[in-house]
Write a protein that binds this DNA or RNA. Structure first.
Length: 495
RNA sequence: GAGCCGCUAGCUCAUCCGGUAGAGCACCGGCCUUUUAAGCCGGUGGUGCUGGGUUCGAGUCCCAGGCGGCUCACCA
C-alpha cells in the first residue's frame, strides 16, 4: 500500500486476527431480502405496537456509517444505494463472541450483513434489531469525519468514490444527471428518433471549430483524431435514410480547462429531416420544459442566485439585434470593422486586427456585452455566415445563416441550424476553412471529401442541434462548476 | 499559458510579531443494554506539499517547483 498510517495498520491487524479466528473478512456472497428503502416502505407506516406483533424479519446489507456503543449494546447506521437505517445490537442476542467481534473488529466504513427484525426505538426511529451480524468487506482506510464530511475539493475530485459516500448532495447530482439523460432519450424516442453510435476515432475531425486530440493506430500506421463532434457522421446517416437520429456523445477538444470546460464532455446531437431551425426551437422549448417539469417537478430552477423559468415561449433575438439592443452596441459598429476593433479594444478584449475577421471581432464583443444578460432561456438567431461553415444561408439574406444558439444562465447550452445540404456550397465553405487553416487558424475545419460525396448523393432539408449535457446538468442541479457534474473530471497528475 | 489565493494529524480546522505544533471528530484502552453530533475517564497519532535560502532558531520570512481553486485567455 502507498502509505500506511497507524489507523490503516490497526485495520490490517484486525483482518489478520479475523483470519486467524477462521473469519473471512471478504466473503464471496450475501443475499439480502430488502433494500433499506424497501424496509421504510414496508414498515415506515407501522406503529411500535404493530411492528412488535408482526415480527418483520429482514436481511439487509450496507456500509456502516456511524456507531454508538453502550457497553453491552450498540447502535449503528448502515447505508446502501437506497438509503440509511439504524441497527441495534445487544450482547444478549449476538452472544459474547458475536458482540465482541462487532465491538472489536468492525469499523465505520466496513460492509455488514444483518439479519433481524424491525422495531421502533424509544425515539420512534425505525431500526433493525440484529440477531446476526456478518462482516461482508473490511475497509482498511477510515472514512472522513462525520460532521464536516469531505470538503477538500481536490480530494473530492480525485477520490470521487469517497465524495459520493459521504456527501449525499453529490450522489443527488449524479442521480439527477442520469434521470436527465434518460428523459431526453425518452423524449426523442417518442418522436421516432433513432439512437445511434458513430466513430469516436475519426480520420478527419469535423463538425466543430476546435483543436482535436491526436492518437495513432499502430496496425493502420496512421493518425486518428478523437472527435470534436459527431455532426458529419450523423448527417451521413440522414443521407442514408435514417431521417431522425441522435447520439448522446462524448466529444473531445484539446483546449484549456475551466469552470465550464472539460477536455471530454457530453453532448446530445440530433438531426431531423424535413425540419428547419424554427422547428428545432419549438422542439427545444418543449424538450427542456418537459425535462424540468418531470425531473425537477417544476419548470423553475435556481441558479447562482437567479430564478430561471423554462416555461415557453422563450425570447428570440437576432444576433445583430442582440448586439444592439441587449449589448448596447452602436449599429454602425456592425458594419464597420475598424469601429468594431476600436470598441473591442475599449472593452479590453484581446483582438488581433491582423487575424480576426469582422465576424470574429463582433463575436468577442457579443460574449462581453450580450452573454452576461442572457439569464432566462433565450434564442439568439441568424448568425453571420462566416462563423457557421455548416449552416444553410437564409433565403432573404445570403450573409446570414439559419442558426440559433440557446443561452441559459449566461451559458451557451445549445447550437442548432438548418443544415447546409448544397454540396457545391459546402465545398466552397470547406475551401474557405482550409484557407484559414493554412493561414494558421488551428481551429478551422478540414476538408472532408467523403462528407461532400455523401452530400452529393443528396441530404434532404434537415435541421440539426447540439445540446451541452454537462452545462444543462449544471443549471438543473445548481452546480457552479462543470467538475461538479462530471464524475471524474480531468486533473493534472497527482502530486 | 498569465495573475491572485490555498496546501498543518485519517477528516474538519486553529497556531497573533520567527521561539519545543493544538482542538474537535475518528482511532486505541476503561465504564456504560433504546442511543443518534450518545456520554464519562485515560491515551496514541505530525517529512507542517517538495527543495533551497535567511536566521542562534522557520509551519511562520525569501526564492524555485508541485498540486488545487478562482479570474483571465481559447472554446461548447
Amino acid at each position: 500500500m502507498e502509505e500506511i498510517n497507524d489507523l490503516i495498520q490497526q485495520r490490517i491487524d484486525k483482518v489478520q486476527e479475523l483470519r486467524a479466528d477462521g473469519i473471512d473478512p471478504y466473503p464471496n456472497r450475501f443475499r439480502v431480502s430488502h433494500t433499506l428503502r424497501e424496509i421504510f416502505e414496508r414498515c415506515g407506516g407501522l406503529s411500535k405496537e404493530e411492528l412488535e406483533t408482526r415480527e418483520e424479519e429482514v436481511v439487509i446489507a450496507g456500509r456502516m456509517m456511524s456507531r454508538r456503543e453502550h457497553g453491552k449494546a450498540a447502535f449503528c447506521h448502515i447505508q446502501d444505494r437506497s438509503g440509511r437505517i439504524q441497527v441495534y445490537l445487544r450482547k444478549d442476542d449476538l452472544g459474547q463472541e458475536g458482540f465482541d467481534r462487532f465491538s472489536r473488529f468492525m469499523d465505520i466504513g466496513d460492509f455488514l450483513g444483518i439479519k433481524g427484525k424491525t422495531f421502533r426505538t424509544r425515539t420512534e426511529e425505525l431500526t433493525v434489531w440484529a440477531r446476526e451480524v456478518v462482516l461482508l468487506s473490511k475497509a482498511l482506510r477510515p472514512l472522513p469525519e462525520k460532521w464536516h464530511g469531505l470538503k477538500d475539493i481536490e480530494t473530492r475530485y480525485r477520490q470521487r468514490y469517497v465524495d459520493l459516500l459521504v456527501n449525499p448532495e453529490v450522489r443527488r447530482v449524479f442521480v439527477l444527471r442520469s434521470a436527465i439523460v434518460q428523459k431526453i432519450k425518452d423524449f426523442l424516442n417518442r418522436r421516432d428518433f433513432l439512437e445511434v453510435e458513430t466513430p469516436i476515432m475519426q480520420p478527419i475531425p469535423g463538425g466543430a471549430t476546435a483543436r482535436p486530440f491526436v492518437t495513432h493506430h499502430t496496425a493502420l500506421n496512421r493518425n486518428l483524431y478523437l472527435r470534436v463532434a459527431p455532426e458529419l457522421y450523423l448527417k451521413r446517416l440522414v443521407v442514408g435514410g435514417l431521417e431522425r437520429v441522435y447520439e448522446i456523445n462524448r466529444s473531445f477538444r484539446n483546449e484549456g480547462l475551466s469552470r465550464e470546460h472539460n477536455p471530454e464532455f457530453t453532448m446530445l446531437e440530433f438531426y431531423m429531416a424535413y425540419a428547419d431551425y424554427n422547428d428545432l426551437m419549438a422542439l427545444t422549448e418543449e424538450m427542456l420544459f418537459e425535462l424540468t417539469r418531470d425531473v425537477l417537478g417544476s419548470p423553475e430552477v435556481h441558479y447562482e442566485g437567479e430564478r430561471i423559468d423554462f416555461t415557453p415561449p422563450w425570447p428570440r433575438h437576432t444576433y445583430r439585434e442582440a448586439l444592439v439592443r441587449l449589448g448596447e452596441v452602436a449599429p454602425e459598429v456592425l458594419e464597420d470593422r475598424a469601429a468594431a476593433i476600436r470598441l473591442a479594444k475599449a472593452l479590453n478584449l484581446s483582438v488581433d486586427p491582423q487575424k480576426d475577421s469582422p465576424g470574429q471581432v463582433l463575436d468577442k464583443i457579443f460574449e462581453e456585452r450580450v452573454e452576461p444578460k442572457l439569464v432566462q432561456p433565450t434564442f439568439i438567431i441568424d448568425y453571420p455566415k462566416e462563423l457557421s461553415p455548416l449552416s444553410k444561408s437564409r433565403e432573404d439574406d445570403p450573409d446570414l445563416v439559419e442558426r440559433f444558439e440557446l443561452y441559459v444562465g449566461r451559458k451557451e447550452i445549445a447550437n442548432a441550424y438548418t443544415e447546409l445540404n448544397d454540396p457545391m456550397d459546402q465545398r466552397e465553405r470547406f475551401l474557405e476553412q482550409v484557407r484559414r487553416r493554412e493561414a494558421g487558424d488551428q481551429e478551422a475545419q478540414w476538408m472532408d471529401r467523403d462528407f461532400l460525396r455523401a452530400l452529393e448523393y443528396g441530404l434532404p432539408p434537415t435541421a440539426g442541434e447540439g445540446i451541452g449535457i454537462d452545462r444543462l446538468v449544471m443549471i438543473l442541479t445548481g452546480s457552479p462548476s462543470i467538475r461538479d457534474v462530471i464524475l471524474f473530471p480531468q486533473l493534472r497528475e497527482e502530486a
